[in-house]
Design a protein around this nucleic acid. Structure first.
Lengths: 226, 226
DNA sequence: TTTTAATGTTACAGAATTGTTACAAACTAA
DNA sequence: TTAGTTTGTAACAATTCTGTAACATTAAAA
């Protein structure tokens, strides 16, 4: 899953939660906490989808929405409005101003994800893909397959999760602790050296002969994909 | 069941519900939320059938319908009009403008499906086929028969539903929980290992000697058709 | 250079997952 | 009813995966 998502929402706790989870899914995320800044930054960011709060400090979500629709470059930008309970009666106003979908706070992340996918699939099917790609390496999450240079590669469950993790944040260096927390199931205790062994296994699997090394060791810091 | 269906309807919640279910049935679906856009996109999409809301933000459903009938390429496009309660008295107008059938909101999906099938069968019988096909495997839902390479295969009820489920989402990997939820009747409790046994039975039935394995095991994730 | 710390590599036992079989209970059709 | 199917589960077999220890190699520090 790729694509860019912009958030205009004044509660920073919600932004953080949503942003973190969306990034884990592979989206690029940016945000503003008020309407006027949001309108400006949104045009720089060029998102594939907008999450828009109903109540903002300066403008209302509806004002923002109308303003966006006036710009012909954003006539078709999918917009999901975030509403609190009790604001639901005004849905009609929202639909008239050009909102594509609603979600009522508090919402679960899975519900939000489903609506985002549905909208993106409609507006721009290419962005809805669970494929993670880095150079000639491809990981297909729905089919659970991995390819290097179009040759399928078999990975064990842990190697698969490990590679998935690196692909979600390519080039970034992660410490062994970070890798443990993100790749291993919660509340499990394994030696830090165990990671080294899995890295070795992953390297061995994805390194077709003649192809360059993709997993980089950063001495005394950790590993990264590069 | 195959074929393309276009929806013109301003309530996105209805679109999503209908679209999702139609896609599960094998249709390709596209939609617009207003009449003018709908008329344009419809001609690009070339649907086999149109679901048309009675009340739209810009044009009325009747206007849209008349406009479509004026185009000689769409003289015979089957159109089902979606009406809310209370709009029923005007059915005559609709019939005169060229609508083929009506359904009153709120409607159940089964009712809608039945009317769609009936209309398609009338206008273009080829599109009404309940066959699910994957490579040399064919499942005929109306006759409840399964063929591998044109040889009929006998499956028990559970194996049949299991295969049907995989055929609706070929290649995608499903966890045992997802399979349980989708294939077994609601509120039933069976061991997760039971699935493994049914997978084994299904494999045994559809694997003609010399033919390649179609059910893939993805360790620690589930199974898929591939 | 020597020393020290970090990482690479290998092998292996036990853990976890899946495949296979058999069987009793539930269900169906005649 | 009875004979034949189908279903869920348990038990065991086969396979794959995982974590660790032990030793080898490499890079940095002294």
């Amino acid at each position: 899953m790729k694509g860019k998502i912009f958030i205009i929402e004044d509660e920073t706790s919600i932004i953080q939660l949503v942003q973190h989870n969306l990034e884990k899914e592979g989206f690029v995320v940016s945000s503003s906490t008020n309407g006027n800044d949001g309108l400006k930054e949104l045009k720089k960011f060029e998102p594939n989808l907008l999450l828009l709060d109903w109540m903002l400090p300066d403008l209302s979500g509806i004002d923002v929405c109308k303003s966006i629709r006036r710009d012909k470059n954003y006539k078709n930008l999918p917009i999901i409005m975030l509403t609190a309970k009790g604001e639901e009666e005004d849905k009609v106003k929202g639909l008239e101003s050009g909102v594509d979908d609603y979600i009522t706070k508090p919402f679960g992340f899975n519900e939000l994800m489903a609506r985002i996918k549905a909208l993106l699939r409609r507006s721009d099917p290419k962005t809805v893909s669970d494929d993670l790609i880095f150079e000639d390496l491809k990981l297909d999450r729905t089919e659970r397959r991995v390819f290097r240079d179009n040759n399928e590669i078999h990975l064990g469950p842990t190697e698969f999760r490990l590679l998935e993790f690196f692909l979600l944040n390519p080039k970034r260096v992660f410490s062994r602790d970070q890798i443990l927390e993100s790749v291993w199931p919660n509340n499990i205790n394994v030696e830090s050296r165990t990671i080294d062994v899995h890295i070795r296994r992953l390297r061995q699997s994805i390194n077709l002969s003649g192809k360059k090394e993709l997993v980089r060791t950063v001495r005394s810091a950790g590993y990264s994909l590069s």
